[in-house]
Write a protein that binds this DNA or RNA. Structure first.
Lengths: 155, 155
DNA sequence: GGTATTATTGCGACACATTTGCAATAAGGA
DNA sequence: TCCTTATTGCAAATGTGTCGCAATAATACC
């Protein structure tokens, strides 16, 4: 029962610390991101949220996500598949990146030190101040690659 | 006068090789990308193109860019500033990446081997087949960083 | 060079994610 | 409990990019 009060209080204190209010809508969206897997877009979050609150408006989802992003609880990404749709996930270390399979659509997370290294180069070699990095990859996962090879064999 | 017939003929042969036609609109868009700097979005290309052909339609720009991308003459990117807008530039080696300054808006190109290295890791360690990579950085350039520091000193 | 075929264009309408203005509502400090 | 004002729901607006279709024009063929 007292398994996860930390993130909840964290949400409350971060909201209040920035002069914002804790609302049922914000709690709901936050909990959806914590519970229902990751990598959700606004509309999907809206669908899930409406199961608890039928009145909840999509605009509120967007505004809530913007707030959660601003207080650092949520990261907003773009996946290779289509860059016009924003994807949200809980902000969590460790730093990781995403690969989207064009065959089955699955998103594979992986870690690498190389991206941070690029950031370091930008700072050290060019004197730039880096505030944000967007990296994503797309291609075919092992299974889908095999499938393609098989189909080509059939031809 | 006969300074640059190569890319022009290249355009023609690549179009014809793929069963497409050479049209004034396509030549115009291609020349704009070759001449008027790089990193243009569709609307900007349209504005520049209309100075030569007032009838030219934005939809034609999009279709032309898709064709140029398909035959490999143009790369389509996303810059950190906003991922909803497609940016186009001539396809050209060497491989390079982009940093957008949030202060002055300038885009700085740079090279690094680390991104290709990540691609190699994906292939070797995870068995993934990589077809596309999107990488972009944002932050503040040297000048804008200095300016911010100065302003904070004033406070 | 003239003609037929069909890729391409211009145009308007559409699609879709995200944003915004505004009046009504509800957090939360006093 | 009341007051202030941040937040919400709603509808309308934005902004890029796409699509269907009839008119046009580039190319292949004679």
């Amino acid at each position: 029962m007292s398994q996860e009060p930390i993130p909840f209080n964290q949400l409350k204190s971060l909201l209040h610390a920035s002069g914002r209010r804790m609302t049922p809508q914000r709690v709901l969206v936050f909990n959806i991101l914590r519970g229902s897997g990751n990598h959700l877009d606004a509309k999907r979050i809206w669908q899930l949220a409406r199961e608890h609150d039928r009145r909840l408006n999509l605009a509120t989802i967007y505004r809530t996500l913007a707030v959660l992003k601003e207080i650092g609880l949520v990261d907003q990404r773009y996946f290779a598949r289509d860059h016009k749709r924003e994807i949200y996930e809980l902000a969590q270390k460790p730093e990781h990146y995403h690969f989207t399979c064009l065959g089955c659509g699955q998103v594979i997370e992986f870690e690498t030190a190389h991206i941070l290294q690029v950031g370091r180069e930008l700072v050290e070699q060019y004197g730039l101040r880096l505030t944000n990095t967007c990296v994503c990859f797309e291609g075919f996962c092992v299974e889908c690659t095999d499938e393609i090879v098989m189909m080509e064999g059939v031809k």
